[in-house]
């Protein structure tokens, strides 16, 4: 296995699928000639030509709608949102059409569509460009929502997403495009609805997805210095959600902390906490706690931005709290 960046893994998955299947094509702002704002699609225009790598106008509702139409007619478009924040403009197309056409048509029409782009913050893009939209899109039946964090999972989940006959919301950890990891060569798929145990432990379960998984892994290292063995669960797939892996872990550790970058209320962590109390109530030794972003629009200033996102210290502190080891 070769070590690749998150960006390279993403590109490799799309390239391989485009080579394998002629119906796969890319659309988005500046993805062709410019190579993509985040250089994800750099060079693909030369490889596949402008019929399969389409530069679009600045019109998310327009090109997302077009992609939905292509998908309904049997193509497999992969749409790049320059950032997921811009998807609000396309939300009507995504929620009202992409998510529902299959149901409306009684299963006669499928929408094999992938919409991908960087999600979340951490790179000083301020309030309008820092949204984490997993709970927003995760709310709607008819959509699949994934948020991989390792380059290997990025590749595997992108391939699975392109091959899936349903619309997939592919939330990339924008702050991690340059991070490296082992990526399997060639055909490598990661299924939906299957979480990954990023670190095994017996004392407390840290549940996260996307960028926060790395935060939890660092927090687990810190806890290990004091003899606390934290288990880190990387959800990877927000919808469908792998309840079983989470429950199995909590049955072992008896304590859970759910970490998310988004705001506390109505978030994925709240869902995780609810599922744990429903299905592992008799195994809990402490309330399930959430670590979330601060309840404000994201600030621009670096110091404030850092204060607004979950920190390693916070995760360590809350893990200690559910272990009744408050300092």
């Amino acid at each position: 296995m070769a070590e690749k960046t998150y960006r390279e893994a993403l590109k490799e998955a799309m390239t391989e699928e485009m080579e394998r299947d002629e119906s796969v094509l890319l659309l988005g702002e500046d993805i062709g000639v410019y190579g993509g704002t985040h250089l994800i699609t750099d060079g693909l225009l030369d490889m596949f030509g402008k019929k399969r790598v389409i530069d679009t106008p600045i019109s998310e509702a327009g090109f997302t709608g077009a992609a939905i139409g292509m998908a309904m007619m049997g193509l497999r478009p992969v749409v790049e949102m320059m950032t997921w924040n811009f998807s609000f403009i396309a939300a009507d197309q995504i929620i009202q059409n992409a998510a529902k056409v299959r149901y409306f048509s009684g299963g006669q029409v499928q929408v094999p569509l992938v919409i991908r782009g960087p999600n979340g913050g951490g790179v000083q893009l301020s309030a309008q460009h820092t949204h984490s939209l997993e709970s927003f899109y995760g709310h709607f039946p008819g959509l699949k929502v994934v948020a991989p964090v390792t380059p290997a999972d990025v590749k595997g989940m992108m391939i699975s997403s392109i091959r899936d006959p349903n619309p997939v919301i592919f939330l990339e950890a924008g702050a991690l495009y340059g991070t490296r990891g082992e990526v399997p060569e060639g055909e490598h798929t990661v299924p939906f609805g299957k979480a990954r145990v990023a670190r095994e432990g017996s004392d407390v379960t840290l549940v996260a997805y996307g960028r926060q998984v790395l935060l939890c892994e660092r927090a687990a290292e810190r806890l290990a210095e004091d003899g606390i063995e934290a288990e880190v669960i990387d959800l990877r797939s927000i919808r469908p959600l792998d309840e079983e892996t989470v429950i199995e872990s909590v049955r072992k550790t008896h304590r859970a902390v759910s970490v998310q970058e988004q705001w506390r209320y109505y978030g994925v962590s709240s869902e995780i906490a609810a599922i744990i109390q429903e299905k592992a109530f008799d195994y809990l030794d402490a309330p399930v706690e959430r670590v979330s972003g601060a309840e404000v629009p994201a600030p621009y200033a670096r110091n404030l931005e850092l204060m607004c996102f979950p920190s390693e210290e916070q995760v360590v502190e809350v893990a200690r709290r559910v272990l009744y080891q408050e300092v």
Binding site: H254, D282, Y283, L284, D285, A286
Partner: peptide
């Protein structure tokens, strides 16, 4: 006052 685990 006892945690659910303790009660079990």
């Amino acid at each position: 006052r006892a945690s659910p685990l303790v009660r079990r």
